[in-house]
Design a protein around this nucleic acid. Structure first.
Length: 937
DNA sequence: CCTGTCACG
DNA sequence: GACGTACGTGACAGGG
């Protein structure tokens, strides 16, 4: 646009009138709830508004460019129409909270672009537009109204046209007739009759645009129609028009635009002006619109302003002011027709947040109850599929299906193509759970994103990653608690018994939250530099773990049952002996009672109390007493059996799935801050191995007939990583030479040649090696080795003399943690250490954790990489990866494929760091084979 | 629901 | 100078 000089508006002039409110609302709904980085001011609508203005200016430079332009706004508050009819626009919901502060900013934006900006108290934008359009027409010029508001159609004709900027469609006289069935001059008549539910214009009840147009065309105009209403043949219509004459006439005054307003400016003053570079830049800089500022600066040939990157904020206090949550807006999808529109929306958008509701938490057993979906923040639905009828009289509920539900199979069949569509991203909170459920219903969901894993990649060590925590921390919104729906304890119900209206709110909210978290987290992954961690270590692990868990491991119930009986017998025997020794019956399982007998009745020395004032009786304390007394020895033996029986032989039987006959653990991908997995329900990562009696429990973990269990484990992986990270030449060389690393350490420390090494010296060195990994302390080492603290300190001092690089690593790591509040693995995983600068007794704790985390975490990353590559690597074989125990992978393999599987899997594991990290030490994997886990290990 | 204890890497 | 300490997990029992 170029300035044309001051001249009278007239023939050859072309006025553009932009409906500002329409721009604002379109901008608001088109963009996510963006906020100004520096202070959290919502600016999404302003950003969209500016982009639209910019696009508008760009599009209007040709020969048909406007000579005059103005953006017209509604004056906030009531207009003269409210004086005529107090219900006018009364059912309009108030503007969204985060939009309100943006209204004045859009005026500023308009002025910054050097475009005339007009609003007048007591009038709506439409009236100003009408007045200006009429003036332009009378002066012999043209006028284009940029709006899609149908109220403005009454102005079209004689050089006035409308332009729907969204669809880039011009509306002329014919367009109006197409829409209203009458010419522009009669549009008010039709509107007066048809009314408008959006603006709350009453009109004539029962008469819509079609009928209104018919009547107006028959009678010519509204006044004639009302005067001759008695002639109308249809009795209903006749009666309506006669009875509602006053209301219809009022409606006409409401829809009739005012063309004769007094304006305090002239058409000429609206002449197109070029933007003033400095003013525009100042505004864009204030708003912190970097991209647009740069683009406009280039176009105008001025310097782009420097806009400082605001410090990244993480707490709820400066979280973005988002769209408020409104459970009333969530939809209950009852029919295939309705579901279809949500599916179409997802295809169009390219992503969808999904959440499943089920009858429980065990993915292998529970039934699907419903599915919630969300494509746009604040717009979510729930598709109930198998809810039961609530029945207040029946304590046990009813098995009858509730009304208002789609058929489950039909819904799943409709969703399957979407959930499997490689072009549509499916967003979950804890994807593994939902993917396993869908898998059981024949749907293989892909590709996925997972807000829980995103949070874990970004914030491990800062908070947990459950939906409640994430929602409260980042969205400042406390979700509906599942407890409030299900209750707790014995009287808890399952989700299929939850009334549909409550279920809709809860379930849809979960999908809404998931989508909003995703919108927030996705760009943050880059900012926090953990995209690679998320993309290569977290997301691809989901399908791998899903498959392992669903496959499960075969556990022999009879073996466990026999062991339980044997344990029970022995325990009864021990218990009798203990009661005898105590001289009275007591509960052996109660540490308090055991402590009382030991330290009060028997008056043994050295008893310590716990924080809560009870006698403390941990195993190592009893171990010391057991040297001289029978009672503590028996308590220890009893406790061991009790542990084995209750935690393993008894409870594992309860975890055998009745359908598969196998045990399906669940891995928590975000359970350990270091990157390790955790295993629950049951925990298969702590099956006994250290004692002979405990190890026999592993005999119950067996291979299916014709198969073997194969175990592959990394040898000394953490020490190898320490040697690499701390860059200790002697250790690295020892690993390259395949030496016994503990013996080598002992040799270095105690000046004993390798060939003269005694087991006891080696044992001490081994303890020190582990101590180093854990962030060694004299106290810890002393306790572990049962030696005086002074001796332990001497060992440590000696160790650091021999391996000064280790001390340097420890100091450097601590310093890095204190400076950055996190430490990192070799693969870029961040483990946050918020306590690292704490004073007092916590200080040492956090420092040792900081030393350990990069080592443990790097090992965890390596085995994750191996697991992610494993399914493809062994896809030509029939064996399956079943379990992971931190440095060990367990497979079930057909007998004939054992050797080949070991060869392939070993290769994958030993090469798992490549090519991302080139380790200075080799990774070595040991393998074992057997009919059960005890033999395979 | 919290604490103590103990199983694993 | 005293304090309290090996790192990371989960499950179970007892006891309020």
């Amino acid at each position: 646009m170029t300035a044309t000089g001051e001249a009278k508006f007239g023939k050859g002039c072309h006025l553009h009138l932009i409906d500002g409110s329409a721009f604002i609302f379109r901008a608001y709904h088109a963009l996510p709830p963006l906020t100004r980085k520096s202070d959290g001011l919502p600016i999404g609508a302003v950003a969209g508004f500016c982009n639209m203005l910019h696009r508008y200016v760009e599009a209007n430079t040709g020969p048909d460019a406007p000579t005059h332009v103005a953006v017209i706004f509604d004056y906030s508050g009531k207009s003269f129409r409210n004086d005529l009819y107090d219900q006018y626009k009364a059912n309009r919901p108030p503007a969204p909270e985060d939009l309100v502060p943006q209204f004045p900013l859009t005026r500023d934006a308009t002025r910054a672009f050097n475009i005339a900006c007009k609003e007048i108290e007591g009038f709506e934008a439409d009236d100003i537009i009408a007045t200006l359009a009429c003036q332009a027409r009378e002066a012999g010029g043209r006028c284009t109204i940029i709006s899609s508001d149908k109220d403005l159609m009454q102005l079209v004709g004689d050089g006035v046209e409308m332009l729907d900027a969204m669809k880039n469609k011009r509306i002329d006289r014919d367009g109006v007739i197409g829409k209203f069935g009458v010419g522009p001059e009669r549009v008010v008549d039709v509107q007066a009759l048809a009314g408008d539910s959006v603006d709350n214009v009453p009109g004539a009840p029962g008469i819509g645009i079609k009928t209104a147009a018919l009547l107006i065309n028959e009678f010519g105009d509204l006044e004639t129609l009302l005067d001759r209403a008695a002639e109308i043949k249809q009795p209903k219509r006749r009666q309506t028009l006669i009875e509602n004459r006053e209301q219809i006439e009022l409606s006409k005054t409401l829809v009739q635009l005012d063309c004769e307003m007094e304006l305090d400016f002239t058409l000429e003053s609206l002449e197109v002006r070029d933007p003033v570079g400095e003013e525009l830049m100042q505004f864009l800089a204030e708003m912190e619109f970097r991209t647009l500022a740069k683009r406009m600066a280039d176009q105008l040939g001025v310097e782009a302003p420097v806009i400082a990157e605001a410090p990244k904020s993480e707490s709820a206090a400066d979280a973005p002011v988002a769209l408020p949550f409104d459970v009333e807006k969530y939809r209950h999808v009852r029919t295939a027709f309705e579901l279809e529109s949500w599916i179409a929306k997802a295809h169009k958008r390219g992503w969808i947040a999904v959440d499943t509701e089920t009858t429980g938490l065990n993915e292998m057993q529970v039934d699907l109850v419903g599915i919630s979906l969300c494509v746009e923040a604040g717009e979510a639905c729930y598709v109930p599929l198998d809810h039961k009828k609530g029945d207040a009289d029946d304590l046990f509920g009813s098995d009858e299906r509730a009304e208002g539900q789609m058929d489950l199979n039909e819904a799943v069949a409709m969703l399957k193509p979407l959930l499997e569509d490689p072009a549509v991203l499916k967003i979950f909170q804890n994807a593994k759970y939902d993917c396993k459920i869908f898998k059981r219903y024949g749907v293989s969901v892909a590709p996925i994103d997972d807000t829980m894993l995103m949070s874990y990649a970004m914030n491990a060590g800062i908070h947990n990653h459950g939906m409640d925590t994430l929602s409260e921390t980042y969205l400042s919104h406390k979700p509906i608690s599942i407890k409030s729906l299900l209750g707790s304890g014995k009287s808890a119900i399952t989700f299929d018994k939850v009334p549909l209206d409550e279920a809709v709110k809860y379930a849809a909210e979960d999908a809404d939250i998931t989508l909003r978290l995703w919108q927030l987290f996705k760009p943050q992954l880059h900012q926090k530099k953990v995209t690679t961690v998320y993309e290569t270590l977290e997301r691809p692990l989901v399908p791998v773990l899903s498959e392992m868990e669903m496959h499960g491991v075969l556990v022999d119930r009879d073996t466990l049952s026999r062991m339980s009986n044997a344990f029970a017998q022995k325990m009864a025997q021990y218990e009798a002996e203990l009661h005898e020794l105590a001289g009275k019956p007591f509960n052996v399982q109660s540490p308090a009672q055991v402590g009382q007998i030991l330290f009060e009745d028997m008056a043994l020395e050295g008893g310590k109390k716990t924080k809560s004032g009870q006698w403390s009786t941990p195993a190592d304390a009893l171990e010391d007493l057991a040297v001289e007394h029978e009672f503590p020895r028996l308590v220890l033996d009893y406790r061991q059996l009790q542990k084995l029986k209750s935690t393993y032989t008894d409870s594992l039987q309860g975890h055998i799935d009745p359908d598969s006959g196998r045990v399906h653990t669940s891995y928590l991908q975000t359970g350990a801050n270091t990157g390790r997995l955790a295993s629950t329900d049951p925990n298969l990562q702590n099956i006994p191995v250290r004692t002979e009696e405990g190890r026999r429990i592993r005999e119950a973990f067996v291979a299916a007939p014709g198969n073997k269990l194969v175990s592959l484990d990394y040898s000394q992986i953490e020490l190898r990583i320490l040697a690499h990270i701390a860059d200790i030449d002697a250790l690295k060389q020892a690993f390259r030479d395949g030496l016994d690393i503990h013996a080598m350490t002992a040799s270095e420390m105690f000046d004993v040649p390798l060939e003269e090494m005694t087991p006891d010296v080696r044992r001490k060195a081994k303890a020190i090696n582990f101590g180093v990994i854990y962030g060694i302390s004299a106290f810890g080492l002393a306790r572990n080795l049962h030696i005086p603290r002074g001796d332990a300190q001497a060992f440590i001092t000696r160790y650091f003399e021999r391996f000064p690089g280790i001390r340097k690593y420890m100091d450097d790591t601590k310093a890095f943690a204190k400076e950055n509040l996190f430490v990192q693995t070799l693969f870029g995983r961040k483990i946050h250490m918020p306590q690292i600068n704490a004073k007092g007794p916590h200080a040492g704790f956090a420092q040792r954790a900081a030393i350990n985390a990069p080592i443990q975490g790097t090992a965890a990353d390596i085995i994750r990489r191996a697991m992610i590559r494993m399914p493809d690597a062994i896809s030509h074989l029939d064996g399956k990866m079943l379990l992971q125990v931190h440095d060990e992978l367990i497979f079930e393999v057909p007998e004939g494929q054992v050797d080949e599987t070991i060869a392939v899997a070993r290769e994958v594991m030993q090469g798992a760091a490549d090519p991302a990290v080139k380790l200075d030490v080799p990774l070595i994997v040991d393998a074992g084979v057997g009919d059960n886990w005890a033999d395979a290990h």
